[in-house]
């Protein structure tokens, strides 16, 4: 067993875990943060995407103990004070979901795209950047629309905050 301490959605957590514990299992089973989904088990579908120190990673192939001291944000940590994050709101508003299983990972990837590439995303960029997230329901049409709208809303929120 190994001890690990990390900050998850702003709260410091410390746990003693089997060193083989995946970050996805740690989040889902130890912390009961079940919004992070496991789809393919092998880092391809993107349902398990979370942010580690501000960057998107697939949590189903990261070992929790390797992230000692890290800051982790999951889908549950995106909303603040009961208000959805602009990207969450955009997915809801633009029907960017059906079964919803890919949605948390899709949104975490989308926020990461905006963080890396800025808010003015053309459709080609969005489509290429989403290649690591599989959706089997929507055909991506509304997801792409949601990401574009969410990106602009994120920029507007940022301006408003400044």
């Amino acid at each position: 067993m190994a001890s690990v301490t990390m900050t998850v959605n702003g709260k410091t957590v410390t746990a003693t875990i089997d060193p083989r514990t995946l970050l996805s299992s740690f989040l889902r089973e130890h912390l009961r943060l079940t919004g992070t989904h496991v789809g393919c088990d092998t880092s391809q579908c993107g349902a398990c995407v979370v942010h580690v120190d501000g960057r998107a990673i697939k949590s189903c192939t990261a070992l929790a103990v390797s992230l000692d001291g890290a800051h982790v944000t999951t889908i549950e940590g995106l909303a603040s004070d009961g208000h959805l994050h602009p990207m969450q709101e955009a997915f809801r508003e633009h029907h960017g979901l059906q079964c919803g299983f890919c949605t948390p990972g899709m949104i975490m990837s989308a926020v990461d795209i905006v963080n890396r590439k800025g808010a003015m995303l053309d459709e080609h960029t969005i489509r290429e950047e989403l290649e690591g997230n599989i959706c089997r329901c929507t055909g991506y049409h509304n997801i792409v629309k949601a990401v574009a709208a969410g990106a602009q809303a994120m920029a507007a929120t940022k301006v408003a905050a400044e």
């Binding site: 889902r28 989904h37 889908i75 969450q88 809801r92 919803g100």
Partner: peptide
């Protein structure tokens, strides 16, 4: 009317429970 999916808000918030998410 083009209303959102009943679980849309839960889906985007990560609070919609699938079988593996049940306590």
């Amino acid at each position: 009317r083009a209303l959102p999916h009943d679980s849309a808000r839960k889906h985007v918030a990560g609070t919609a429970a699938y079988v593996d998410d049940l306590p």
